[in-house]
């Protein structure tokens, strides 16, 4: 089996700070693989090593079966990258951004022009091709970054928080484009801290914290394994309810002003709780990836 990415015991240190501390994972062709984690978990540091932006401190890393140490240029020419920061060229127009970028990949002029036309259509920006980048909205810029990362027909697309800071309409636009690319068989590596984004796009994912992998698996399986099917949230729980939850040995999390009960019983438990302990402020919902995430990485602020 030829893996798209094979990372083994990947490590990255900045001075005394260990950003990535022994991370191992494999990405198979055609899958969308997610790296999740709170701020400072080591997501960006991990993917920067993969696209050759920063050299690794230790471990082994192969992309397309090629060793990153010796064949970085070959690897770099076969991947597309959407960086977290806006790196669009403000000195150039929308179309020039694509064409100039194509030159960095040694794509011949005519081919680049044709490809740029295609991509501008794909991201619905063909009507703005002569606009300056600075005139575009945030959503348009992100779509243009996406288009630019596809200029070399990459075999692997790396996205570092592709929808951070976008309005809901723009996020859905980007997601639809990404789903289209995935359905065509493009392998995607994605970092995000939006759980809905990860659930929707990722076939498999890892959750990282403090430079290490906490869990690895398919979104739904992770939810089942770590949270269950349902979650009952109680706002302003009273002591009787707490006592009941404890006596039944239900898996729960007590946040003081809020009690969260994870479980498999769903409706029955919810009816019991809401009838007997909390007429108001008690909600039953499906378990999500966010529950897994918060359960594993905790609820303290990361700054």
């Amino acid at each position: 089996m030829q893996y798209i990415i094979e990372a083994e015991n990947l490590r990255k240190r900045f001075g005394d700070v260990v950003a990535v501390d022994g991370v191992s994972f494999r990405v198979v062709p055609g899958e969308c693989f997610g790296i999740l984690g709170p701020n400072g978990a080591g997501k960006t540091s991990t993917i920067r090593m993969i696209y050759g932006f920063s050299p690794m401190t230790g471990g082994h890393l192969k992309v397309f079966g090629l060793d990153i140490q010796g064949e970085l240029r070959a690897i770099k020419s076969r991947i597309g990258v959407c960086q977290q920061e806006n790196t669009l060229d403000p000195d150039l127009t929308v179309q020039q951004n694509l064409e100039v970028f194509a030159r960095y990949f040694d794509i011949p002029k005519n081919e680049a022009r044709e490809k740029a036309r295609e991509l501008l259509q794909f991201i619905a920006l063909d009507h703005r091709k002569n606009a300056k980048v600075t005139e575009l909205s945030g959503g348009m810029m992100r779509r243009l970054v996406l288009a630019r990362s596809l200029i070399n027909d990459p075999e692997l697309l790396i996205l570092d928080e592709p929808t951070t800071g976008l309005d809901p309409q723009s996020r859905h636009q980007v997601w639809e484009r990404l789903e289209e690319l995935r359905s065509k068989g493009l392998s995607i590596l994605l970092t995000t801290h939006y759980m809905d984004e990860a659930s929707r796009l990722c076939d498999r994912l890892i959750i990282m914290d403090h430079g290490r992998i906490l869990v690895q698996g398919k979104p739904l399986e992770l939810i089942r394994e770590h949270v269950g099917y349902d979650v009952i949230e109680v706002a302003g729980p009273n002591s009787k309810l707490r006592a009941y939850v404890q006596s039944r040995g239900l898996e729960h999390e007590d946040l003081g002003h809020r009690l969260i009960v994870y479980g498999q019983e769903g409706d029955t438990l919810f009816r019991t709780l809401s009838n007997q302990y909390c007429r108001e402020g008690c909600t039953l919902r499906m378990a999500t990836l966010e529950d897994v995430f918060l359960k594993l990485t905790g609820r303290e602020l990361r700054e």
Partner: peptide, 12 residues
């Protein structure tokens, strides 16, 4: 402008 950062995500 982060122009160099963008370039480093290419074969350059």
């Amino acid at each position: 402008q982060k122009t160099f950062d963008g370039m480093m995500a290419t074969p350059l």
